[in-house]
Design a binder for these strands. Sequence first.
DNA 1: CCTTGACCTCAAGCCAGCTTCAAGTTGCAG
DNA 2: CTGCAACTTGAAGCTGGCTTGAGGTCAAGG
Lengths: 140, 140
Amino acid sequence: MLDITEVVRRSGVPASTLRYYEEKGLILSTGRRGLKRIFAPRVLDQLALIALGRAAGFTLDEIGEMFDAGGEPSIDRHALSAKADALDDTIRKLSAMRDGLRHAAKCPAPSHLECVQFRRLMNIASARMKVEKQRGSQDI
Amino acid sequence: MLDITEVVRRSGVPASTLRYYEEKGLILSTGRRGLKRIFAPRVLDQLALIALGRAAGFTLDEIGEMFDAGGEPSIDRHALSAKADALDDTIRKLSAMRDGLRHAAKCPAPSHLECVQFRRLMNIASARMKVEKQRGSQDI
DNA sequence: CCTTGACCTCAAGCCAGCTTCAAGTTGCAG
DNA sequence: CTGCAACTTGAAGCTGGCTTGAGGTCAAGG
């Protein structure tokens, strides 16, 4: 059993954020010693999961839908797959952006907006984006 | 030469956003007819580029550093490469997240936080994240 | 020439995700 | 038992990226 300071020390997540997450129902404190929250060690895993989700561009609400306050994945396997698909699209966009940047860093073309290769990368990614807008998903 | 309504129609970007981007120095209007802004067709490409950057998790300020108001990549090739590297890290995290979600959608384990495969995916991604925090980069 | 409505500006507002602040409580070292 | 540092709460504040609103200007059609 960990007090909030210990959780802060081990996770690097500020106390204010822990209280905020608890208020939002993303984590649970297992009890109180007086006023003070007590956490089960498992909260450290949940925090890692939340950080991962945030880094993947999900909102806190979405993460809340994917995992319960105990950190277990939602029963809705279909929703989980849908999130995974959304991530695939995002990954494709990011890859195009990365390739575009790498190309721009190398290519000596006078105007990149007119460089064939650069435009091709741009188009791949922006075509993807329109698809996503239609579906209204995963707009990091 | 396009007026703002035409740019809105062709790009899907709201007029308020166009004015905001101009104010921020991300795009340029090439002149005025009376009070009204006139844009060169090239602004459509720049908007696509900005949308791509946003989707890749860059802030407007970062995009401003990567590309000048004409849409040409920054002269600082080193910075462009650095952004590309940051994207590589992000892509790795997202891939781990995606795999984790796909696994969670399938795996019948009672507790995923104790599922070896799930934990392995989590760890890959959170190790990556610490590296990024140290470098202070790309925290979508 | 006059109206109209598309554009303009500037300021304020909104949402997410936190952080900060003021004021109150309490476990525990001395 | 006392004191104080570490916790607590609730509300307000902040940043980024826009959107909205009030009030003003002006180009073009009738």
